[in-house]
Structure formats: C-alpha cells, structure tokens
Write a protein that binds this DNA or RNA. Sequence first.
RNA 1: UCCUCGGUAGCUCAACGGUGGAGCAUCCGGCUGUUAACCGGAGGGUUGCAGGUUCGAAUCCUGCCCGGGGAGCCA
Length: 434
Amino acid sequence: MECPWVSIEKLPDWEGKEVELRGWLANRRSSGKVVFFVFRDGTGFAQITLSVGAFFDKETLKDLERLPLESALVVRGRVRKEERAPGGYELEGTQVKVVSVADEYPIQKKDHSVEFLMENRHLWLRSRRQNAILRIRNQVVMSIHEFLQGQGFTLIDSPILTPAACEGTTTLFGLDYFDLGKAYLSQSGQLYMEAACMAFGKVYCLAPAFRAEKSKTRRHLTEFWMLEPEMAFYDWQDNMRLQEELVSFIIQEVLRTKARELEILERDITPLKKIEPPFPRITYDEAIRLLQQKGLSVQWGDDFGGDEESIISQEFDRPVFIHHYPARVKAFYMQPDPENPQLVLNDDLIAPEGYGEIIGGSERIHDMHLLEERIAEHHLPREAFAWYLDLRRYGTCPHSGFGLGIERTVAWICGIHHIREAIPFPRQIYRLYP
RNA sequence: UCCUCGGUAGCUCAACGGUGGAGCAUCCGGCUGUUAACCGGAGGGUUGCAGGUUCGAAUCCUGCCCGGGGAGCCA
C-alpha cells in the first residue's frame, strides 16, 4: 500500500491518513503498554504512540522502549488529532524501522554548561531552540535578498583573501600567500563594493568578515557575517532611509513567517511589532548631552561603549540612528560634514532592548585629494589603495553604504543573550572547535 | 590583553583540613495516555595537571592548562 513520506511540519494536513516519518528519536516515555516517542525530522517535533495490540507485541515494544536517543528511524502510522499530544497531532505507529542505533547521546534533557554545549555544538544544533534560532537566521538572510533585489540591487561577491586592511591592521588574520608575501582575511567587503557600485549602481555583498580582536563579550565573534550594501549617488540621508526600510522589512517578514519559532524562543514580540520607519535620529552631540544628563562622565570626542548604547536605546521604542560622529573616532573613508569638517556624515543604528550597534554606515569620501590626505594621515600603504583611489579618478560621485551584522540582528530578533547562538558554528577567541 | 569566577561520576552540582555524595543519564525491574513522565534496585571516581604546606588535602599555597562572565574595540 502507498504510504507517503511526509514532514512533521505538514502533519495536520494528513489527519486520518497512513503516512511515513523519517527522523530521529528525540525523547521517549513509557507507561507499561504504551510507549511514547518524541520524534524530530528537522521540520518539527511530533509525538508517536506505540501500543501493545495489533501491530506490536509486548517483547517488540520492550525493545523499542530501549532504543537510545537520537537513533535514526523510519516510522509508519496513522495521523490522529489528539489533545493530549504536544502540537495537537500524533502518529499512531504501526511500523518502526530502525535505520541506526545511536550510542549514548551526550546532550541530556537537564541543564548543561555553556562549555559543554559549545563543545557539542554539532549535536546541540538538533535542539528545538537552536533549530528555531537558525530557522529565523535563514529567514533574515532570505528577507535581505528579497528586499534588496526588489529595490534593484545586484549581489556582488567580495573577496575573502585581501592584500590590505581597511580597518586597523592590528585586527587582521594574516597568512602566507605564495610568493606574494602576506594575505589577510577580509574584515569588510566595503572597498570592493565601492568599486562595484560604480559599475552596477546599487550593489551588496553578504559575506563573512574576520576580526582578530581579542574581544570576549556576548556581542563579538572573530568570524561573523555582514551585509554590505553600497549605493552610487546616495547621500547620508538616502543611506539612513534605506537602512530603516530594510530593517523594518526583515522584522515584519520574520514576524509573518516565523511565529512558531519565536514562540519556541519565548520571545515577546510586542516590541518587534513596533518596528517600522521612520526610526528616530539623533546627532552625536545630542547623544553626548543625553548621556551627560543621565549622569555619565562621557566627553565630546569619546566613542560609545555597550553601556552608553543601551542607555540611549532605552529612550526609544525602535532602533535609533546616531549620526555626525567626530571624524577622529571613525574610519578614514568617511565623508566630512561640509558645515563642520570635525564631523563625518555617518550613522550607527542602535537596536532596542540593549542589543547594541547593528549597523554602521556613512557617505564615503569621493574627492581624490581628500582621500589621499586621509590615507596618509592614517599611515596606510598608498600602493595598496591605488585601485581605490582610481575610483575617485574615473567618474567619481557621492556614494554611501553600510554594514549590517547578521548575528547581532538575529540575536536581537530572537531575544537571545549571546550572539554565539545566532551562527551555526561560532568562532571565538578561545573556541575553534567544532 | 586586563579584571573576575570556576574545573569533583557521562551531565548538573554538593562536600570547604579528618572514610567523596545527590539528581539526571546508563543498566535491570514495575506501570494501559505519558508531557524534562513516574516508582523500586544496581553499576559508575587517580577530585584539570605539576609541585608545596600538613600526621592527614577535593578543600590551604605556588605555577601551568582549559573554560565561563565582563571591559576596551567593533558589526
């Protein structure tokens, strides 16, 4: 008889039908004559009941009850609506085929330390919670592509191996590159996106970025994913409008398509529902005054740390832009404010609820001589930037772009404490395994 | 890199100078609807490593190794 292989996600559509599930034993319980399996197949979790009777004798059931957790199984049975089953539907099993018997599974139902879970990240991914987070990450990335493609952007892949730094050289991962000396893992695709936007108009890359910062905080990874759009003829205000529209679109799409995952994570979605344009905008000067009013000892010219960002974001119910920073705390390529050259035409976007900076963006310097000066002031090797200066030589124009941190964005949407859970295999200062 | 906390059974922890225990997991038994099921029994240890103090060290001291939390910096 025909018995379709179906996914747990779609189980309610098959009520009353005989189906086949293929997956893994996530948990089991027994009550004498009935064995309960909690079964997962990657799309969800479902309860399977196996009873003594027409399909199983007492001995067979006893053996099935002893199956180790995470054994791979193919189970056939009838789909039944059942209030007592988690999820409202269960499979009344008629046949169990054991594909493989697992060794004793290290991840248990009770508590584990962070160290143990990270050491077993390859297995931890199977948990409900990690599954939900990475499904939301998938949606965030898909929504980014959908939004930008809809706005006429072209995806241009940036190189991972690069000849020089675009941020500070102290945070570069270096490696030997044949006879050409040192190469470095990319910290950002931005400079290449600037070249690409002069060829395609509006472009973006979505790529890993590597920073050898010895950071040990819940907001840092040594390898993280960054979205970097770059737009020719956009000024700093066009730039911010694009950012708020993109972020709002991502949030609304996750709310629309990933309600079940947000529920698994017990995320309060009330604050997320409020995320829509326009976002509040304050200048760096206003931010400093706000912090001083709150009694912090910050001085004009200081950059903001996590605490300062949190205090500012608490004043608003959606992400907040801070723009016009002092030039000397920001990168060399940022366009000075024509009205006050001490400031740059940049913006940082601070996520609510203490999640910190998720975007850094700016209008870029498009004047060749000014850019040459900045490269010299920052003691950057001029030869390495020859091609970058060329962009100012051949049809230069105002242009802007930004970088959005994928893991920080996912962590914020999921309401999770540490960004290491927002990436499948996190790379941190003291962790390279698995 | 700095500050801070920790490393004891497979896992999470207790014992804090005097014979290393518990819960979960595992194994055996029981239970006809379980929801981290429950009930009974059993096995399981060179207390991260190396030195030192002491009659005696998981416990106190020194060094090292490995992690957790935080800072600076950033997305």
